[in-house]
Protein backbone atom coordinates (compact mmCIF):
# COMPACT_ATOMS: atom_id res chain seq x y z
CA UNK A 1 0.00 0.00 0.00
CA UNK A 2 2.21 2.78 -1.18
CA UNK A 3 1.08 6.12 0.13
CA UNK A 4 0.61 8.59 -2.59
CA UNK A 5 3.19 11.25 -2.10
CA UNK A 6 2.92 14.25 -4.33
CA UNK A 7 5.96 15.17 -6.33
CA UNK A 8 5.91 18.85 -5.55
CA UNK A 9 4.87 20.57 -2.37
CA UNK A 10 3.28 23.78 -1.41
CA UNK A 11 5.54 26.49 -0.23
CA UNK A 12 4.62 25.93 3.42
CA UNK A 13 5.10 22.18 3.33
CA UNK A 14 8.32 22.65 1.43
CA UNK A 15 9.69 24.90 4.14
CA UNK A 16 8.56 22.39 6.76
CA UNK A 17 10.49 19.64 5.02
CA UNK A 18 13.64 21.70 4.79
CA UNK A 19 13.25 22.61 8.44
CA UNK A 20 13.30 18.91 9.28
CA UNK A 21 16.37 18.46 7.11
CA UNK A 22 18.03 21.22 9.08
CA UNK A 23 17.02 19.54 12.35
CA UNK A 24 18.60 16.31 11.16
CA UNK A 25 21.71 18.10 10.01
CA UNK A 26 22.25 20.05 13.21
CA UNK A 27 23.77 17.25 15.36
CA UNK A 28 26.18 16.37 12.55
CA UNK A 29 27.31 19.97 12.34
CA UNK A 30 27.60 20.00 16.14
CA UNK A 31 29.64 16.81 16.13
CA UNK A 32 32.03 18.31 13.62
CA UNK A 33 32.45 21.55 15.54
CA UNK A 34 33.01 19.71 18.81
CA UNK A 35 35.80 17.67 17.28
CA UNK A 36 37.65 20.72 16.00
CA UNK A 37 39.69 21.23 19.24
CA UNK A 38 41.24 17.80 18.65
CA UNK A 39 42.84 19.00 15.43
CA UNK A 40 46.38 20.19 15.80
CA UNK A 41 46.97 18.54 19.17
CA UNK A 42 47.61 21.90 20.77
CA UNK A 43 45.41 21.15 23.74
CA UNK A 44 48.16 21.24 26.30
CA UNK A 45 48.45 24.91 26.98
CA UNK A 46 45.05 26.13 25.91
CA UNK A 47 42.33 25.01 28.29
CA UNK A 48 40.82 28.48 28.61
CA UNK A 49 40.70 29.01 24.85
CA UNK A 50 39.26 25.59 24.18
CA UNK A 51 36.74 26.06 26.92
CA UNK A 52 35.61 29.36 25.48
CA UNK A 53 35.33 27.84 22.02
CA UNK A 54 33.39 24.82 23.26
CA UNK A 55 30.93 26.89 25.23
CA UNK A 56 30.37 29.19 22.27
CA UNK A 57 29.67 26.21 20.00
CA UNK A 58 27.38 24.83 22.66
CA UNK A 59 25.53 28.12 22.89
CA UNK A 60 25.26 28.19 19.11
CA UNK A 61 23.76 24.73 19.06
CA UNK A 62 21.22 25.69 21.70
CA UNK A 63 20.27 28.81 19.76
CA UNK A 64 19.97 26.91 16.49
CA UNK A 65 17.87 24.18 18.11
CA UNK A 66 15.63 26.81 19.68
CA UNK A 67 15.16 28.51 16.31
CA UNK A 68 14.32 25.20 14.63
CA UNK A 69 12.06 23.87 17.35
CA UNK A 70 9.69 26.81 16.96
CA UNK A 71 8.81 25.55 13.51
CA UNK A 72 8.97 21.83 14.26
CA UNK A 73 7.09 21.39 17.51
CA UNK A 74 3.71 22.44 16.25
CA UNK A 75 3.76 20.52 13.02
CA UNK A 76 0.41 18.90 12.32
CA UNK A 77 2.05 16.56 9.86
CA UNK A 78 0.13 17.78 6.83
CA UNK A 79 2.85 17.37 4.31
CA UNK A 80 0.81 15.53 1.75
CA UNK A 81 -0.74 18.39 -0.11
CA UNK A 82 0.26 18.74 -3.69
CA UNK A 83 1.10 22.07 -5.12
CA UNK A 84 -2.03 23.38 -6.73
CA UNK A 85 -1.44 25.68 -9.64
CA UNK A 86 -1.42 29.16 -8.21
CA UNK A 87 -2.97 32.05 -10.11
CA UNK A 88 -0.28 33.79 -12.12
CA UNK A 89 1.10 36.96 -10.64
CA UNK A 90 -0.31 40.03 -12.20
CA UNK A 91 2.25 42.58 -13.32
CA UNK A 92 1.88 45.68 -11.25
Amino acid sequence: MARRVPLFLKRRSYRQRRLRDAARLLPLVGMFLLLVPLIGAGGAGNTAGHGLYLFLVWLGLVAAAAALSAGLGSDPGDDGEADSPAPPDRPR
Binding site: A23, P27, T47, W58, V62, A64, L72
Partner: peptide
Protein backbone atom coordinates in the same frame (compact mmCIF):
# COMPACT_ATOMS: atom_id res chain seq x y z
CA UNK B 1 41.33 15.99 33.60
CA UNK B 2 40.56 19.53 32.58
CA UNK B 3 37.90 20.05 29.96
CA UNK B 4 37.16 16.38 29.43
CA UNK B 5 34.20 16.49 31.81
CA UNK B 6 32.11 18.44 29.27
CA UNK B 7 31.95 15.37 27.03
CA UNK B 8 29.43 13.93 29.50
CA UNK B 9 27.14 16.85 28.63
CA UNK B 10 28.05 17.28 24.99
CA UNK B 11 26.83 13.80 24.09
CA UNK B 12 23.29 14.46 25.41
CA UNK B 13 23.39 17.91 23.80
CA UNK B 14 23.94 16.34 20.39
CA UNK B 15 21.24 13.74 21.00
CA UNK B 16 18.68 16.34 22.01
CA UNK B 17 19.61 18.83 19.35
CA UNK B 18 19.13 15.98 16.89
CA UNK B 19 15.83 14.88 18.44
CA UNK B 20 14.32 14.46 14.99
CA UNK B 21 16.52 11.41 14.47
Amino acid sequence: SGLEFVTIYLGPTLVFVGWWW
